[in-house]
């Protein structure tokens, strides 16, 4: 564990807390994409299957459970909790996440898994676990897309939503620093290029949004993404 990873994890937790508070206090889900958070829930559920098979550390297990529970509760609030669910703007949340996120990621994960030959010689269960892990890496990188597309439709983005995007972006950016750190200071640390590629892609998506967000803030005007 290094300082970049710890800060990255904390940034991730903080972004989730920001969103949970926003939902609980404002009792309002407008401008928030349910689809993005359902994708994140799917990401955590497919990545953390090792919760049942391998113990790494108390920190590791607690964080995994915290991510799953907090994301599940976000999904629950937007979907079912009254009065929040009545403020969810379903008509605007239209990104076709099955066709353009889950499907392609599943295909990509299957291809990488078999081409890399990582799972050969291991049991079917381990292979499925590996496949799901790879899928979750791909899916996480683009899970924010429904949210970004939803925000494009809104004339103004709340500070809180801006903060959420900022902390989510910092989380992945800090993970990149963590990988660089580990490469230098951990002998035998093996590169995982799929995770690197997805990590950079993910960071760029957030950075791009945040760039336009800050520009419009500085001008003090209304915020809208270029279409």
């Amino acid at each position: 564990m290094n300082v970049f990873r710890l800060c990255g994890d904390m940034s991730h937790v903080f972004s989730i807390v920001v969103l949970l508070l926003r939902l609980r206090v404002a009792k309002n889900a407008s401008g928030i994409s349910l689809r993005t958070h359902e994708l994140f829930l799917l990401v955590f559920l497919t990545r953390y299957t090792d919760l049942f098979t391998t113990y790494y550390s108390l920190y590791n297990s607690c964080m995994k459970i915290a991510y799953i529970l907090s994301t599940a509760s976000i999904v629950y609030m937007i979907r079912l909790s009254d009065p929040i669910c009545t403020t969810y703007d379903k008509a605007q949340d239209t990104f076709r996440h099955w066709a353009f996120a889950v499907g392609p990621c599943a295909v990509l994960a299957t291809l990488t898994h078999f081409i890399s030959g990582e799972g050969s010689g291991y049991s079917l269960f381990v292979n499925i676990q590996e496949l799901l892990w790879t899928f979750s890496i791909y899916l996480e990188s683009i899970a924010i897309l429904p949210q970004l597309i939803l925000l494009q439709r809104y004339r103004e983005v709340e500070n809180l939503t801006g903060n959420y995007i900022f902390f989510m972006g910092s989380y992945r950016a800090l993970y990149i620093l963590n990988w660089i750190y580990r490469t230098y200071y951990e002998p035998g640390y093996r590169h995982h290029y799929v995770a690197y590629f997805c990590g950079v892609l993910q960071t760029l998506l957030y950075a791009d949004f945040f760039y336009y967000y800050m520009q419009s803030k500085r001008r003090g005007g209304r915020f809208s993404l270029p279409t």
């Binding site: 991730h12 790494y56 991510y67 381990v126 676990q129 892990w133 963590n178």
Partner: peptide, 10 residues
């Protein structure tokens, strides 16, 4: 295995 290499990351 991939999961062994980045096992301690979230």
């Amino acid at each position: 295995l991939v999961m062994d290499e980045v096992k301690d990351e979230l």
